[in-house]
Design a binder for these strands. Sequence first.
DNA 1: CGTTCCCTTGACACCGATCAACTCTGGTGG
DNA 2: CCACCAGAGTTGATCGGTGTCAAGGGAACG
Lengths: 259, 259
Amino acid sequence: MVREYPEPKSGPLRSVGGAGCERFIAKLGAASSLSDDEKLALRTLCSDTRVVPAKRHIIREGDNPEHIHIILNGWAARYKIQKDGSRQIVAFLLPGDVCDLHVTILRRMDHGIVAIGQVEVAFVPAETMEDVPLERPNVLRALWRATLIDEAVMRAWIANIGRRVAIERIAHLFCELHARLALIGLVTDGQFALPVTQEDIADAMGLTSVHVNRVLKVLRTQDLVRVTDGELEILDVAALRELCGFDATYLHPEQLARV
Amino acid sequence: MVREYPEPKSGPLRSVGGAGCERFIAKLGAASSLSDDEKLALRTLCSDTRVVPAKRHIIREGDNPEHIHIILNGWAARYKIQKDGSRQIVAFLLPGDVCDLHVTILRRMDHGIVAIGQVEVAFVPAETMEDVPLERPNVLRALWRATLIDEAVMRAWIANIGRRVAIERIAHLFCELHARLALIGLVTDGQFALPVTQEDIADAMGLTSVHVNRVLKVLRTQDLVRVTDGELEILDVAALRELCGFDATYLHPEQLARV
DNA sequence: CGTTCCCTTGACACCGATCAACTCTGGTGG
DNA sequence: CCACCAGAGTTGATCGGTGTCAAGGGAACG
């Protein structure tokens, strides 16, 4: 079922059926092959699918939600707001990512999650989410694996923001997104959708949008990337990786078939 | 059993018995009360206890270890090294923390862990670690909960390094350590052991040791903290928290009895 | 009693923030 | 159809926080 969320106002529903759900299953199953029964269990998790319009919240800080959320299509941002109002994005959530597995255990959200563009999200009741994996060790392992890779990405972000200058940070972000999107089949010829503003990039990398703008200009003039209206093309992956010292092994792609 | 690791050279073995182990169990059990059987299972995990001397590695990047490690006493640092040789500490591991639960699933370490002072560590065979929780849902929950709080701490670090100036960053770090150590009973009168160098703090906060030195001087002259030879005393917790906007809820202390 | 590690302090350079202005685009309403 | 407006991108000038380089001091240790 595809429902509009939270209010029906931005045009007709997109009736995508279970397409996004299959991506989620493929992503989880790629590392630890799942049985048909297990896949079915995952598919039923995704039965409540809703479309969240751009810039709308999926969850807010302080919420005590009764669902966990899985991104099926589009991008979302996990962020924290400081006392002075500045925002730090701590993760980009891509199709197949689980937003908030932790609320089943920690309950209160210590951060918010907002849709970047329009996002298709599966809403899974928390109790369902607790039962399924416990009875299916393979699913548990797969979910745990996804959590651990999220952690590895966070560690890479800390090192990125803490120890690299602006151009390296942004190059590293682009390399990460390139690698993660490639694993779920969303890159063609080094080109992929990048539905974020320069301010989003700034808030993710600990910079200002003004400086992001200047850095992008340098990356463009050095023929490393091409940025065109919501699309990013990496013209020279090797050079970009060299620039920032990107090493994809932390994403553990070797265990993932390309889906 | 207490063994020296990796070479017997730094004085007599400390025969601490199971003291550190009890802290680990208390920490895990505080949130989801464990049965005696479950506690016993955890205690047997800690049967192989070794002492790692200061500055020695517990694991290195690239390792494919057959043990997971639990800090029982002392501090360790989780860190990544950049191409240019600079180091970023991405977490401080305190007594009761599990270093590398993920190696049971992801296998290859994407970062290193080094002892800061002398550290007492439990070595748990990976296969043991896989079996115990699967048969004991409560233990699984407790371990998962610990993992999720580690994640919350990492998110706080990203926001800290990305969006705060040096003095706020360091204040926030001190507030975090104060709160985490208080939960395991290692704070008395706002005072606790801080067995790190200024360079460690710099590598953790994305700064240089020179600048950390200057910032500490300011914190000292403002009577916010007192730093004396491996000890930190927070003179005005409220003021320090106000300075950096520290909010302890992300550590979910409400679920933890003070042990 | 030299060596090493850590802390401390000063002078200066530079990366990125801040402030401000302008363009371009798409949307909205008169 | 056009005027207006909001959001995003672009660019310049200037300021400030932090890095870099350098030198020296104290304590622990062999």
